[in-house]
């Protein structure tokens, strides 16, 4: 496998809630390479969202390493970590992904403009990204002129615009009907097949079915993983490093 886009090594995350300490993650190991779509499943409170936040640098681990494209977010300065986060990682949430006052193309171009890319080339990259998710014709529409599925496609385009290759998605199909959700997963799958990597938190087995690997989280620990290519891995004891 070429260099992984995301590596989590023995990641712990605990936070104090009143007089008790909540261990949201307890020693999670996860490696995601280019071309891989990894789904994370688990009951509520198992640490799925925390895992995603830590992976994207939105939250810091109590201990352990988080490497995005080989760079350890923990040892970087806050500013440098923010730059890695912004330039390497894209997010797709259940809803409220797009700014309502901007068109699809402007929404997708925005992260590139924040990267320092000029307006015109940023806009060109945005149109290319929109074409890659099959919604080139929506470039000049505003979010409220699009269906939920179209908005999620635009959100995927925004997450992977320019050089970004790591997409973190938290229940991206949660607000969609089943058929539209499938379409969004199909796009996500296609982007991964084209070389991106994605971590998808979902409670829908049907959507996790699109993944190369499904990781089962429980009480902050990876207890199992499934997938045609991960047969041998799933025999490893939990907590064992890869």
């Amino acid at each position: 496998m070429s260099e992984p886009l995301l590596v989590l090594r023995d990641v712990h995350r605990s936070h104090v809630q009143g007089s008790t300490t909540v261990h949201a993650l307890r020693g999670v190991d996860l490696t995601v390479g280019p071309g891989e779509l990894v789904a994370v499943m688990g009951p509520s409170g198992s640490g799925k969202s925390t895992l995603l936040h830590v992976a994207g640098g939105l939250d810091t681990p109590t201990s352990g390493e988080v490497l995005v494209e080989g760079r350890d977010l923990a040892v970087l300065s806050a500013g440098a970590a923010a730059a890695v986060r912004r330039r390497s990682v894209g997010y797709v949430f259940q809803d409220l992904n797009l700014l309502p006052s901007l068109t699809a193309a402007e929404n997708v171009a925005l992260p590139r403009e924040l990267d320092g890319v000029r307006g015109r080339p940023a806009r060109a990259e945005a149109r290319a990204a929109l074409a890659e998710v099959g919604v080139a014709e929506l470039a000049d529409r505003f979010p409220d002129e699009m269906s939920g599925g179209q908005q999620q496609r635009v959100a995927i385009a925004r997450a992977l615009v320019g050089p970004r290759r790591l997409l973190l998605a938290d229940e991206p199909t949660g607000a969609l009907d089943s058929a539209t959700g499938e379409e969004v997963l199909r796009v996500l799958r296609a982007r991964c097949d084209a070389g991106a990597a994605a971590v998808l938190v979902t409670h829908e087995a049907r959507h996790a079915g699109w993944a190369d690997r499904v990781v089962f989280l429980r009480d902050g620990t990876v207890i199992d993983s499934s997938g045609p290519v991960a047969g041998a891995e799933s025999l490893l004891p939990s907590g064992g490093g890869r």
Binding site: A205, G209, W210, D224, S226, S234
Partner: peptide, 17 residues
């Protein structure tokens, strides 16, 4: 349950492909 879940999920992944 988990042993079955993992096996069924693998089936689902294969079917989706």
């Amino acid at each position: 349950v988990q042993t079955q879940r993992s096996a069924t999920m693998t089936t689902l992944q294969e079917l989706t492909r």
